[in-house]
């Protein structure tokens, strides 16, 4: 892995900043890589499309995404806004209920009803981001035990259990 770029996009309130934090912790602290984490800032982060971006490298890297290796899109607006710089190798993960018009011709697009899965397994749609984390853990071939460890370290105890369920559901739905 030379330089690896991830983008987590959605609407303010869907927890895309948290996904950035969790992935940054995994790659930076657990996997011991160099990382740069960038987040939407200010008015951008309050409603409307927002994103966090993570750049992973063996060495110190420049803090700008040039072509994401993975894009998570949890809303239609963010899917359209943040796909300009992708190519056919980019792994695109969309919420199939929320992004209706994903490009059918893109060879690497995965459609998963993550919000519906969250509602079904935890009763809360707000856990959709952690379902997505489960799916991405599978897609990126990350050891799920490592990511569970990240969740246990980073999430407050009162919301840990339902998020562990959400993660499990996401991890298992993706073959």
């Amino acid at each position: 892995m030379d330089n690896f770029q991830l983008r987590f996009a959605g609407t303010g309130g869907q927890g895309m900043m948290l996904i950035g934090d969790l992935m940054a912790y995994y790659y930076g602290i657990i996997d011991n890589k160099q990382i740069v984490l960038l987040k939407s800032y200010g008015p951008e982060a309050r409603g409307g499309a927002c994103r966090s971006e993570l750049i992973v490298d063996e060495e110190e890297c420049y803090p700008a995404v040039t072509c994401p290796d993975l894009l998570l899109a949890m809303s239609e607006q963010s899917y359209h806004l943040y796909t300009e710089d992708i190519d056919e190798n980019t792994i695109i993960l969309v919420d199939s209920d929320l992004v209706k018009d994903a490009d059918e011709t893109h060879p690497n697009t995965y459609k998963v009803p993550m919000t519906a899965i969250a509602k079904e397994t935890t009763g809360k749609t707000i856990c959709a981001n952690i379902v997505a984390l489960g799916v991405m853990t599978k897609l990126l071939k990350i050891d799920p035990e490592d990511m569970l460890g990240v969740l246990k370290t980073k999430l407050p105890a009162r919301i840990l259990d339902i998020n562990l369920k959400a993660f499990q559901a996401g991890y298992e739905v993706q073959s």
């Binding site: 930076g28 160099q34 990382i35 740069v36 960038l38 987040k39 803090p63």
Partner: peptide, 9 residues
């Protein structure tokens, strides 16, 4: 502003 807001290990 970039250095201010970006996170690194």
């Amino acid at each position: 502003a970039i250095l201010a807001h970006m996170s690194e290990k």
